[in-house]
Design a protein around this nucleic acid. Structure first.
Lengths: 117, 117
DNA sequence: CTGTATCCGATAAGATACTG
DNA sequence: CAGTATCTTATCGGATACAG
């Protein structure tokens, strides 16, 4: 969505942390709003843009498109173009995507049962 | 560090997601910069403010204090005041804190070995 | 149907100065 | 030693308009 400025401590510190441990890269990705919801919704069988948009109620086109791009860039989903007019696309999880989904389920279980918010 | 405004779609959507699943609350917490590093550093035996600050090199007082407050508020660490002058405090993980740390290790392993960034 | 472009408000991180 | 207060800047999410 936006590039990061090279000349700032903000940028420098984030880079430092991401180099220190990839966990920080992963958290930076999955903590983006709606991202895990998009992943889960695809897993549940919502494979099309409009279907995802409906299942997620309040998400905007802009953000949904961005999250799909991020998920694809990081190898968590595959995108395929179906022939015909109007154009149709289909999204499915990769094996890495479903592995991440399982890990997030574990975190979710912890959050629901053990955390105090 | 800062309060959230009640009258904005930004706030409304975040609330919607947090109510939908606590995973979103947890991710909102652990994705705050330095937070997991502070957790891991305490686990490794850095139990004092200054010791943590040294182990994390570039973290500021402000952020370190904030992250310690958040971790304590959510029951992930305990804070104890040691008697004497100058004042000393000590931080240790709770059982929930180490459970979360284990889950994050799993995520970290995934990030290091399976993810493409 | 499946997106993209541009602008703007809200928030998070950091800089600096200060304190019991 | 262990923090707090105030201010600034960068970034993120969202609104609106538009398009192949």
């Amino acid at each position: 969505m936006s590039e990061r400025k090279l000349s700032s401590t903000n940028y420098y510190n984030q880079s430092f942390l991401e180099n220190k441990c990839s966990l920080n890269e992963l958290l930076y990705l999955v903590s983006k709003r709606w991202l895990t919801e998009v992943l889960f919704s695809i897993e549940e069988g919502n494979n099309r843009f409009t279907s995802l948009k409906e299942s997620l109620e309040y998400i905007s086109d802009h953000i949904l498109a961005d999250r799909l791009r991020l998920l694809e860039q990081h190898g968590l989903i595959n995108k395929s173009y179906l022939p015909g007019n109007p154009p149709r696309t289909e999204y499915v999880l990769t094996s890495q995507g479903s592995e991440l989904s399982d890990l997030l389920d574990g975190l979710c279980n912890f959050a629901e049962n053990k955390m105090q918010f």
